[in-house]
Design a protein around this nucleic acid. Structure first.
Ligand SMILES: [Zn+2]
Ligand SMILES: [Zn+2]
Ligand SMILES: [Zn+2]
Ligand SMILES: [Zn+2]
Lengths: 137, 137
DNA sequence: CAAAACCTTATAGTCGGCTTCAGGGTTTGA
DNA sequence: TCAAACCCTGAAGCCGACTATAAGGTTTTG
């Protein structure tokens, strides 16, 4: 199949597919006599894996490492599992950070709501903005 | 004070302070006769606010909107509160997405651990990698 | 009095994951 | 038959928040 069909079957644009080939996440495609890229079903599966792996937060670089190991015929199980575990730690750290952020934001909003807008006539001292203490637990 | 002292007092590098001035988050600094930027304590407070607002996940663009309203002498309370609320919605969406990501990743790891590496001798079919079903609840 | 340490500007590079553009060639269908 | 729709390449642009580099001028310190 040509790149356009692969694109419609996977929901990934032709440009993106060529980009994946450029950075090595997809192997160099076979070519038809006219130079057009030619794909079979394995490309569909590989793109599906890439999308799934991305939805677990893996970067293209991480995905590429896995796929390169596989392409090299190595037993990837151990490496893959430890990479996934490493990535889980990253994701947990992001979650932690985002939850702290959410907490601070909630406090700021609460503090802002409790203020009396009537008291906020001095443009140099908007209470909402100056509610610095809301940032510091 | 000169930019270097402002930098040490706020923990924000001189380059970053100039960058903030460039994009308009800091007002154009006063200049000394030799062309050096000259700051007073209000710059320290403003940078402190920027850092605090960033730690609640506000972008510099959002922060700039607030500061511009304030600089224009508008009563910012209402706008600020609604912007903060809007931003809280964004953060909640990010949290949701990240939690789903974490869930998928956990499932993938569980599935990968349960596999018998002895069964993974065919390099074209690494079980860990092919555990696509782990991605789909 | 010279070197280190500071200050200035403008421009370019970084990260990741694309998207868009410019300027072609090929295939398909009315 | 000829225009639309597809394909190709390489390079550049985009987002955000910086960071770095180049090529100067000024001030402080020993
Ligand atoms: Zn990772
Ligand atoms: Zn106010
Ligand atoms: Zn926001
Ligand atoms: Zn395996």
């Amino acid at each position: 199949m040509k790149i356009g069909e692969l694109a419609t079957r996977t929901g990934i644009s032709p440009q993106t597919i060529r980009y994946y080939e450029n950075i090595g996440v997809l192997p160099d495609a076979l070519r038809m006599p006219n130079g057009y890229r030619s794909y079979d079903d394995s490309a569909v599966r590989r793109l599906g894996f890439i999308r799934d792996a991305q939805s677990s937060g893996l970067t293209l670089t991480e995905i590429q490492m896995v796929l390169e190991m596989r392409d090299a015929g190595e037993s990837t199980c151990g490496h893959v599992v430890s990479m996934l575990e490493q990535h889980l730690i990253e994701v947990d750290r992001q979650l932690d950070e985002l939850e702290r952020t959410r907490h601070r934001l909630g406090q700021l909003i609460t503090a802002a709501r409790q203020m009396d807008p009537a008291n906020c006539t001095d443009p140099d001292k908007c209470q909402t903005i100056s509610a610095k203490e809301a940032f510091h637990d």
